[in-house]
Design a protein around this nucleic acid. Structure first.
Lengths: 344, 344
DNA sequence: AGCTTGCGGGGAAGCGCTTTCCCACTACCA
DNA sequence: TGGTAGTGGGAAAGCGCTTCCCCGCAAGCT
């Protein structure tokens, strides 16, 4: 870079001057436009841009075009493999569509989620993707719905990944059916007595999975008694603790513990192992999601596979599709039972 | 929202009109300014903003202020727990500083990394954080350095997390020392014969860790022969495969396999277990990083703990600190050996 | 009373782009 | 040869903000 170069990046203006053309022509040459530009001019502009190291200012483009090329992704916790896998898919999909992704974290709090969405709106993203579990109706949930509606009103697209709980395009994880299938598979293998580790009662994902599991058992005449259901935090440590509680109460009467997600299941597994339990000999453990490490713990975790990364990509595709009609479209994401060594 | 409301979000202009003040006053009332505003006006503006659901347009602010309130984070693979933990820290730190984070993925390719950085520059982020392992000098690495220099020239700050390999502020993971300490700890416990699973030869992180490990052994008169070093992909599957190779060659003469990162170690662990090996009875496994699941595999993984989330926060802090002098500042991040059940 | 300060509102000039609109020019047709 | 259509360059009007600068006014001083 020549000495004395003024601070600040080269602007389109600089490029135009350098190339000896107008701003309009420079803009048209560099940043795709409907209008064609004489090849001679075009190459002069491109050369000038190259020479000056010109990089278009996205903010300026965003403001001039009235919409910024970004997708905002809201996750509960990016360090949780469930979300990081979805995020990987979202980023890949966004990349293919030429979009930038910005991320925000809710720490599983409905209040924070609302705040985060409000904040994100300042970016005027083209797409807003919500991935956390939805909550049972709360004040925040309603406020969120209003916020999102206002956002769509101004041209944005929202996609909810998890449950059909908000009136927007959604990728509905088939939590109920997956858990039901899992329960039946487990029962068919001869397991009879179950316990469950769930999230707090206000988490829809947790509720759906638990309900599916119980119904699956009920269909085969089996029961998951209320006092065998332990609510805990929706994290690895939550699972760990809940398993501890279970251990205190005694696990002799239990064949399999169903944790409503894999990270909890893995936490529980660790706790049980610490207590010297043989798995699945003394007691089995099953989870839900099939996060990457589910196969690497030992014994490998029985779970319900969700194509998380693919879900992320689909979310982008769904957001970018034209909407047909006024009804939000709901796509279902199927789960597949994976019986592994952590259960008999 | 009243019917007939024009499409598009409320602008500051609308707010000003609604409040019966000038644009300047509205701006000053809502978005922190040095100038004070009469309380009477201020509250009128705030009320009007509230009424209209006004949300400032970040792009417009960015362009008017000449800098956007964002930090760009470059990771190799967000689904990898190493990166997602760092990302969690970065997001937290950014959040505290009122910054938005946008993310891009390199898929561990130097070429893609260069492209990604170029693309990110369009956002004019305040901070650019590079987290992947650096590469041995390659054309891309030089081009990247130039790109980053140009970026700082225009007022941005770059922070490199990993190795002191580029002339910018960096958070230097103490890979060499950590691996050296690990080797010594392992040797002191009576392990004598080692093998290593590394990344490709061009990855600095991998090289440093390997070198540290070998030197640690050498200090105690032990050796890690060249033919016991298996380069593989820097992923779980890479570790899995490499362990397979090792298995084919026979593992009888090996006490411990050192994988240069935890995900590889966990892959290796899985492969060994599949082969029916007793760990650490037949052979031990050690990793590096202490990702969250390292303690949940069984046997729990011996490793070197890196405070990943904290590193993410520190990266932000470092970027936001005034630079003292012209020299890039280099902070060192220590590792702590964690001897767990996967080694004797 | 006359003067200087300081405070704070508002007009307007940007920030870096895109896009509309005007216009000159060429090509084609009858 | 006159007229029309089509092509493509450039001037300029925004996009939604921030901030400089001017100015009126009240307070403080001598």
């Amino acid at each position: 870079m020549p000495t004395g170069t003024p601070k600040g990046a080269a602007t389109l203006h600089d490029v135009a001057r350098e190339a000896g053309v107008s701003l309009a022509t420079a803009s048209r040459s560099l940043n795709g436009s409907a209008r064609r530009v004489n090849e001679e001019y075009r190459s002069r502009v491109v050369a000038a841009a190259e020479r000056l190291g010109y990089i278009p200012n996205f903010s300026a483009q965003a403001i001039a075009r009235g919409m910024s090329p970004t997708v905002a992704l809201v996750v509960s916790d990016i360090a949780d493999p469930y979300f990081s896998s979805i995020a990987a898919g979202v980023i890949r999909g966004a990349d293919e569509a030429g979009l930038i992704v910005t991320m925000a974290v809710t720490e599983r709090s409905a209040a924070r989620e609302l705040g985060v969405v409000k904040g994100l709106r300042g970016q005027r993203p083209r797409v807003l993707i919500l991935t956390g579990s939805r909550f049972l109706d709360s004040g925040e949930e309603e406020a969120l719905a209003r916020e999102l509606a206002a956002y769509e009103e101004t041209g944005g697209r929202v996609v909810v990944v998890s449950q059909r709980a908000l009136p927007f395009d959604t990728l509905q994880m088939n939590n109920y059916d997956g858990a039901r299938d899992l329960a039946r598979a487990l029962a068919e293998r001869g397991n009879r007595r179950f316990a469950a580790i769930t999230g707090t009662r206000s988490l829809l994902t947790s509720n759906d999975r638990l309900q599916g599991f119980r119904d699956g058992l009920a269909e085969l005449g089996l029961d998951l008694p209320e006092d065998r259901i332990l609510p805990a935090e929706f994290t690895r440590d939550g699972g760990y603790q809940a398993a501890g509680e279970l251990l205190e109460r005694g696990i002799d009467g239990i064949d399999v513990i169903f944790a409503v997600n894999d990270v909890m299941a893995i936490g529980a597994l660790s706790r049980l192992r610490e207590a010297g339990a043989d798995i699945p000999g003394d007691i089995g453990v099953a989870g839900f999601d099939d996060i990457a490490t589910a196969r690497d713990v030992s014994p490998a975790l029985t779970t319900v596979r969700l194509p998380l990364e693919e879900v992320g990509e689909r979310a982008i595709r769904l957001a970018l599709a034209d909407r047909d009609g006024n009804e939000p479209t709901v796509e279902s994401v199927g789960g597949e039972v994976l019986l592994r060594a952590s259960t008999r």
